[in-house]
């Protein structure tokens, strides 16, 4: 769909090869975390994201941005780990501020997305709500 997707693909590949180049010199320390599978996950998730998001209705780009905002507040997981573990106080405080920031994003992101989406009404939907409103008025009169 986008010619720039190709550019993205290229940059991703370059990024990955640079990363693996760095890692090649660091084989020994790479044992504790499986970085390669992480990079795989990152690459595949990016392509899934591009696939799914290019199908999103253009009507909904503002709600899309607020819902992805809430989703990227998944940083809450990292903040919870830092705040919750028995680490030195300054770590706990940094973690708690991060937790506050991500929690704010989760709460406001999902709530405002839902609020906006409720407003999108089809012609039918609007006819229905108008009818129920006027219907109520008439039933009171009778």
């Amino acid at each position: 769909m986008f010619s720039k997707t190709k550019i993205l693909l290229l940059t991703t590949i370059i990024f990955l090869s640079v990363q693996s180049g760095i890692l090649a010199q660091d084989e020994t320390s790479a044992s504790s975390t499986d970085f390669y599978s992480m990079l795989f996950v990152f690459m595949l998730a990016t392509f899934i994201g591009i696939g799914v998001i290019s199908r999103v209705s253009r009507l909904l780009h503002t709600p899309l941005m607020s819902i992805t905002n809430a989703i990227s507040a998944i940083a809450v997981v990292g903040s919870l780990i830092l705040t919750g573990h028995d680490y030195p106080d300054y770590i706990t405080i940094l973690g708690a501020v991060a937790l506050f920031a991500s929690m704010t994003n989760i709460v406001s992101g999902f709530l405002i997305t839902d609020r906006m989406l409720k407003m999108f009404q089809s012609r039918q939907g609007r006819a229905l709500t108008d009818k129920t409103k006027s219907g109520k008025g008439e039933s009171k009169k009778s």
Binding site: F42, A45, F47, G49, I50, L64, M65, T68, S72, V77
Partner: peptide, 25 residues
Amino acid sequence: AMGFVLDNKLLVTAGALDGSSGLIL
């Protein structure tokens, strides 16, 4: 990047979804 630091794949996937959304927009 936080996902890479913390070795957490959920962070990587959710972050990548947000990243690609911003990129496409």
